[in-house]
Nucleic acid binder design. Structure first.
Lengths: 186, 186
DNA sequence: ACGCGGCGAGAACGATCGTTCTCGCCTCCT
DNA sequence: AGGAGGCGAGAACGATCGTTCTCGCCGCGT
């Protein structure tokens, strides 16, 4: 009950800090201050910073994919249109002021070479996204290769939007996706 | 003379460490040990770690683009083929054991929010790459939008290859690029 | 020959980090 | 009522980091 609430509060604070400033740049003390919890309780819920990072990535992966699927499902029933709606959702995401690229790519670049759990979380996130696109492509009648191509476009749009600091890569990627889908006959 | 040699040696060591393990994970002492130079000399050449990081990114940007242009220029004289040759060069890069994604994306994710120089270096690197592709596309008769689409494919391939740990994204991206170029009439 | 300026090697310093411990207080059970 | 155990607040600890300082030594100019 209250247990889950404080756990959620800790993860909320950790996510905002880790995603916004990088993982190594954020100390456990900053997480404690932002979450309003005491340091002892923080270590009761997450026995080490590595555990907190892992929980942060796991929760963000699930929520990210849930929100994407919800948006795409609500946008249209047309399978081809759903594949394009993915890029509309990306555009909305990129426009958020706190957007700073893919949390998993950032974490992978920072810790992937030394923290196997971080590398595995990033791999899992990307695999799940690719599988989601492959499912949409399958019901739309597009070949699996096209799904992989769309995944690369989305991936590229995410990092391009982060580095350039604007949301136009989403519309560029959507235009490219339209060409690829048309060429695939859907 | 010897001045440039030790500077190059320092940057060689710093690049291998920073790129392979992340910037924050590498201390100045590790750079000193790897370069064989004394700590005092290290700080004579680069007055702070920030300066060393900046020099590392600057040199890597120039060398990366030079090697890409050299490979593409030597591959074929056909403008459309040169655009595709970009992805062959990416495949070679991905296959290197030390490959760990784009150094600028990694540095941006780690320090971009707090170090403006790092963010600017990443932006400059991506802008220069996009401009290079735009030049190739122009002489190939492809519209600028297609060049932007190919840039997104390349960007996505780089991070996908890093996270997944294999080089196949390069051939996927090349296949997608072929479709886009054909649709653009080149 | 002799002093002096620069160098290598590494100790030292202050800050910060992840993690644990102390201490005083509050609450709850019998 | 009284003691025992858990909690909040923050000090403390050991490690590490970026950066600077010390010290002994070598070479070079006069």
């Amino acid at each position: 009950m209250d247990h889950d609430a404080t756990r959620t509060g800790i993860l909320d604070a950790a996510e905002e800090l880790f995603y916004g400033q990088g993982i190594q740049a954020v100390g456990m003390d900053a997480v404690r201050t932002a979450s309003g919890v005491t340091l002892r309780r923080l270590y009761q819920y997450f026995p080490s910073k590595g555990d907190l990072v892992e929980a942060y990535l796991l929760r963000r992966d699930e929520r990210w994919r849930d929100e994407l699927a919800a948006h795409v499902g609500a946008a249209t029933a047309d399978p081809g249109g759903q594949l394009l709606a993915v890029f509309d959702w990306l555009a909305d995401w990129f426009a958020q002021p706190a957007f700073r690229g893919c949390a998993f790519v950032n974490a992978f670049g920072e810790l992937g070479s030394t923290a196997p759990a971080v590398a595995a979380a990033a791999r899992h996130h990307k695999d799940a996204f690719a599988a989601y696109l492959a499912g949409l492509a399958d019901t739309a009648g597009a070949p699996p290769a096209t799904a992989a191509h769309l995944a690369l476009l989305a991936e590229g749009a995410i990092t391009a939007a982060a580095v350039r600091g604007d949301a136009t890569p989403a519309v560029e990627a959507k235009a490219a996706a339209r060409v690829l889908l048309r060429a695939a006959g859907v």
